[in-house]
Design a binder for these strands. Structure first.
Length: 763
RNA sequence: GCCCAGGUGGCGGAAUUGGUAGACGCGAUAGACUCAAAAUCUAUUGAUGGCAACAUCAUGAGAGUUCGAUUCUCUCCCUGGGCACCA
């Protein structure tokens, strides 16, 4: 072929690669393994997004390089297909979510294949496949067996639009994370997972993993570990105590009053002794209860509160009776829901004390505090609300029997499959649409064989994604979620890249599930991911998010058609630093495409040997590209290859050296490099060839240029020999014509020499 | 309000972590090729002054440390993201 035509080569090689199975991971291998993971996509009806391509290409480049470094690589793909958009689509159109999911995954698969990602397609998984969610349900039963799944009646966040209960983690700024609707409060029986039991380990074990510092910090802030002291305050004339949590137990001598959250259980217990109960306190407590979190916290910092008259607590430090208040700025779910106020030391407490004329003790002694409480660790993290009143999720495998109570579905009866329904709308009472299918709901109790009802709640879509990386190591296993030997060989994941938006939700949940499975000795490591990085978003050319309503999306298929997958991959890697958000530029595709055309053109003019300048630059580039890939600096890797191609364009290039260049370009542009590699007579794929070695002897120059500064300003540059001594170089510089012009007989105060870089003369 | 990123030509961005600011790419201008256009090639391209050699200024603003600051310190302004009175 004389000219580069991506249409003739891309599909061709994709088919050959698939037929030969060159990207298949080998479960039995003596090679060292490398498990590279991307977050499996949600197959939305809109098809693949340019953002998917950016993150998938990055990991694709990394795993392709690892293969060329003789690693046995696992780079799998699947579908995180349960979720609201598909269900909402079903509500609108009446089309079954399973059918929509099938359509969407077919589109996604075709689109992903057209980009040339080196996924091992033989391991494709789908969270909505009963063969997969059988094991999601099975893991839930293990949680239940071990007391980590429990039912609780609790105030939940209720989205009136989605008609669904939301986990605290899914409420962003008081509104539903998905639809933006103001969240209400409702009482509801919910399945919960006790993630808080793992809070300490989830925090501590971050020390063992290689996550980006920001990611660790975000997880730590979310878990919110804080060490402090729990102190009992006795109540005068009452036998119970108010437990207070403080990080500053040394300030107890300055504590002049207590504040309880209005929801605090002691408020109800002390009711009969509170003299202003009916006229003030009761009303205030009710008001707070009706407030959403956002109203409660958005009061322009004007604090409200009511004193519980008739109640006095005793400060254990000085035995003085102090007043007790309720105020909504104290939250029931953090600490003990009660604080001791030290207005002399704490800004909020002072503000509150000044407003309500409470005593402030300025000088108090700070010694001897340790006797008054016990050391304790508190976390912000709350248990995970695991129930959804929706159709399109894994049914929670539990039945309710009047005689026997809540009974888990026996493991042999898994999976509990989703039945077909006619109407996907949640019921008016907010129950799952499953509640309407009496045939499915009414069942036999596994224990007494009497009448029983199935749980109609389903799992949140975080469930299937909490363990999918484990299934990839053994996707077809019918006996267990994955074979132990496979787990031992492949896990942990060596490198996991994903979106920033998942650093507190998905990442934390999957670490929690993993630790639980580790405790049951079902997985061999305490952490699922050795290394975690994250990518920046791709924004529209105006710097805002892509959105359907604006119609500013970019269709990757059009780009592939016009420019080719290789150009698209290169552009997305070249457009900016990988961890930062970048704007899509319609004209940006041109540069990478031209680059590939020049790469092609050079193949038509190869000689026997390369010029020295090409040889030197090639070596430098091999080194830089290798380092840049490992550090995810794809943009500079590409620019250095562009510099090399510019040089090769002008100079003589030998076949052997050109092939080395093809090898380092191969992870970025797999199709064109394979075609050229093949055209040059290679029979085996470039993608399993050995990554070229750097010839260190070619990296160093004997003659180098150094910069000459006078008083810190660049005035000229000179060539020096690397073997020359500092003395000789200084002498040479001082007698330089241009330097003499500036020194002009003046006194040289100081000469600073930075080896092989610059020399600065201070006058 | 607090925390984390970030602010560099017309645009996306680079800068060996204190050592030539603007690599690489896009765009633009001029020329070559062409009947013409596209593509390609060649040259120029931060600003100001100058015929030129060159000089001065310039990395959000202002100060500081230093022989030397895009890089370090302080104050302030702006953009994006996260958290929401956390005891």
């Amino acid at each position: 072929m004389k000219e580069y035509d991506h249409k003739k080569i891309e599909k061709k090689w994709q088919d050959i690669w698939e037929k030969k199975g060159i990207y298949r991971a080998q479960d039995k291998s003596k090679k060292p393994k490398f498990y590279g993971l991307i977050e499996f996509p949600y197959p939305s009806g809109a098809g693949m997004h340019v953002g998917h391509i950016r993150s998938n290409t990055a990991m694709d480049i990394i795993v392709r390089k690892r293969r060329m470094e003789s690693f046995n690589v696992l780079y799998p793909i699947g579908w995180d297909a349960f979720g609201l958009p598909t269900e909402n689509y079903a509500i609108k159109t009446g089309i079954a979510p399973s059918k929509v999911t099938k359509q969407n995954t077919d589109i996604f698969r075709k689109q992903l294949k057209a980009i040339g990602f080196s996924f091992d397609w033989s391991r494709e998984i789908d969270t909505t496949d009963p063969k997969y969610y059988k094991w999601t349900q099975w893991i839930f039963l293990q949680f239940l067996k071990n007391g980590l799944a429990y039912k609780a009646k609790m105030t939940i966040n209720w989205c009136p639009k989605d008609k669904i209960g939301l986990a605290n983690e899914e409420v962003v700024g008081g509104v539903c994370e998905r639809c933006g609707m103001q969240v209400e409060k409702r009482e509801k029986e919910q399945w919960m997972l006790a993630i808080t039991k793992y809070a300490d380990r989830l925090d501590k074990d971050l020390d063992e993993v290689d996550y980006l510092p920001q990611i660790k910090l975000a997880q730590r802030n979310w878990i919110g570990k804080s060490d402090g002291t729990e102190i009992d305050f006795k109540i005068k004339g009452h036998d119970s105590v108010i437990k207070v949590f403080t990080t500053r137990p040394d300030t107890i001598f300055g504590a002049t009053y207590l504040v309880l959250a209005p929801e605090h259980e002691m408020v109800q217990k002390l009711k009969s002794q509170i003299t202003n109960w009916s006229e003030e306190v009761e009303k205030y407590v009710k008001e707070v209860k009706n407030k959403t979190d956002i109203e409660r916290t958005n009061e322009d910092k004007v604090k409200t509160g009511i004193e519980l008259k008739g109640i006095k607590a005793i400060n254990p430090a000085n035995k003085e009776g102090i007043p007790v208040w309720v105020a909504d700025y104290v939250l029931p779910h953090y600490g003990t829901g009660a604080i001791m106020a030290v207005p002399a030391d704490d800004e909020r407490d002072r503000e509150f004390a000044e407003k309500f004329k409470l005593p402030i003790i300025k000088d108090y002694k700070k010694a001897g505090f340790e006797d008054f409480g016990k050391r304790i660790t508190k976390f912000k993290l709350r248990d995970w609300v695991f129930s959804r009143q929706r159709y399109w999720g894994e049914p929670i495998p539990v039945v309710f029997c009047d005689k026997c109570g809540t009974i888990p579905v026996p493991e042999k009866d898994l999976p509990v499959e989703l039945p077909k329904v006619k109407n996907y709308q949640p019921t008016d009472s907010g129950e799952s649409p499953l509640a309407n299918i009496s045939k499915w709901v009414n069942t036999k109790c596994p224990k007494c064989k009497g009448k029983a009802k199935r749980e109609t709640d389903t799992m949140p879509n975080w469930a299937g994604s909490s363990w999918y990386y484990l299934r990839y190591v053994d996707t077809k296993n019918k006996k267990e979620f994955a074979d132990k030997k496979n787990l031992k060989y492949w896990t942990p994941v060596d490198w996991y890249n994903g979106g920033n938006e998942h650093t507190t939700l998905h990442l934390l949940y999957s670490r929690f599930w993993h630790k639980f499975l580790f405790d049951l000795k079902l997985v061999p490591t305490g952490e699922p991911y050795k290394k975690r990085t994250s990518h920046g978003m791709i924004l529209a050319d105006d710097g805002t998010k892509f959105s359907k309503s604006k119609g500013n999306g970019v269709n990757p298929e059009d780009v592939v058609k016009n420019y080719g997958a290789d150009s698209l991959r290169l552009y997305e890697m070249f457009m900016g630093p990988f961890d930062q958000a970048v704007s899509w530029n319609r004209d940006g595709m041109v540069g990478p495409r031209r680059f590939l055309e020049r790469v092609w053109k050079i193949s038509q003019k190869l000689s026997k040997n390369s010029s020295l300048s090409v040889l030197k630059l090639l070596n430098k580039t091999i080194k830089k590209v290798g380092e840049d890939i490992d550090a995810m600096r794809f943009n500079t890797a590409i620019s250095s290859m562009m510099v090399l191609v510019n040089e090769m364009d002008k100079e003589e290039v030998g076949v052997k050296d050109y092939k080395k260049f093809l090898q380092i370009l191969a992870p970025f542009a797999p199709h064109i490099t394979e075609e050229l590699w093949n055209m040059l007579g290679e029979k085996k794929t470039v993608h399993l060839s050995l990554w070229p070695k750097v010839d260190e002897s070619l990296l160093e120059d004997k003659e180098i240029k150094i910069v000459v500064q006078i008083n810190g300003k660049v005035r000229t540059e000179i060539m020096i020999n690397v073997d020359e001594s500092e003395e000789e170089i200084k002498k040479q510089v001082i007698s330089n014509d241009i330097v003499l012009k500036f020194t002009n007989g003046g006194e040289v105060k100081k000469v600073i020499y930075v080896k092989n870089r610059l020399i600065n003369i201070v006058l």
